[in-house]
Design a protein around this nucleic acid. Structure first.
Length: 212
DNA sequence: ACCCAGGTGGCCC
DNA sequence: GGGCCACATGGG
């Protein structure tokens, strides 16, 4: 799959950002939202010089909510972003990368303890901001594995363990494979499948005519 | 007028 | 440990 999807999709610079902290903020903003909506927020955050820990701690909540609005769930997300910034300021002297330097599983548990950071968001941060070998078992990944008959599971940890047991544990490979799967999902494997031209149509057990 | 998006947390049993 | 639900804007 890795090689065949790689021949079908270009996923270079797939998570564009000017800093690791920007990726961490993006990971929260993109929860249950399209990246296009996140970009508007990111542009606005950048324009207001808010992409650093101390500025986010300082900014008043109403202003931040207004900026976050286009990404949806804006009250939750604004407070989650603020909470993350405050956590890093208090525990890591405002250095967002310090947490990534801890042993992987400890860093993961610590991220999970922060409000608004669940498994997928934590792993996105570890993989894309921390460059750690953690595969992100997003719902799209689950859907593709299910429809292709590779693994029928909704359990995050099980899906992650499965992929990590097969794919070589290199951050670049996890990141590219993840990007390829999400790209595949966005073009062909949405809730309503778009099967024409899908590079995996032949082995997919749930192409449109069979239904789900 | 629907359905869906690169989830998370809270509450119920 | 599962099954709902709220959270919210923006695009098809």
């Amino acid at each position: 799959m890795y090689e065949r999807l790689g021949a079908s999709f270009k996923v270079e610079n797939w998570w564009p950002a000017e800093s690791e902290f920007e990726i961490m903020i993006g990971a929260i903003l993109t929860q249950q939202t399209t990246w296009e909506n996140v970009e508007k927020v990111m542009t606005d955050l950048k324009a207001n010089g808010l992409l650093d820990v101390d500025s986010l701690v300082r900014i008043d909540n109403d202003t931040l909510e207004e900026i976050v609005m286009p990404a949806g769930f804006y009250r939750q997300k604004a407070s989650r972003i603020k909470g993350l910034a405050e956590y890093i300021k208090v525990h890591y002297d405002s250095n967002p990368l310090a947490i990534m330097n801890r042993p992987l599983e400890e860093a993961r548990r610590e991220l999970l303890s922060i409000r608004g950071i669940g498994e997928e968001t934590a792993d996105s941060m570890l993989l894309f901001a921390g460059h750690k070998p953690k595969f992100v078992a997003a719902s799209y990944v689950s859907r593709i594995l299910k429809r292709t008959g590779i693994l029928d599971s909704e359990d995050y940890d099980e899906i992650q363990r499965y992929v990590e047991s097969i794919v070589p544990p290199k951050p670049e490979i996890y990141a590219k494979f993840y990007a390829l799967l999400i790209q595949l999902a966005k073009t062909h494997c949405k809730a309503r499948p778009i099967c024409g031209g899908c590079p995996l149509e032949r082995e997919c057990a749930f192409s449109v005519r069979k239904g789900e």
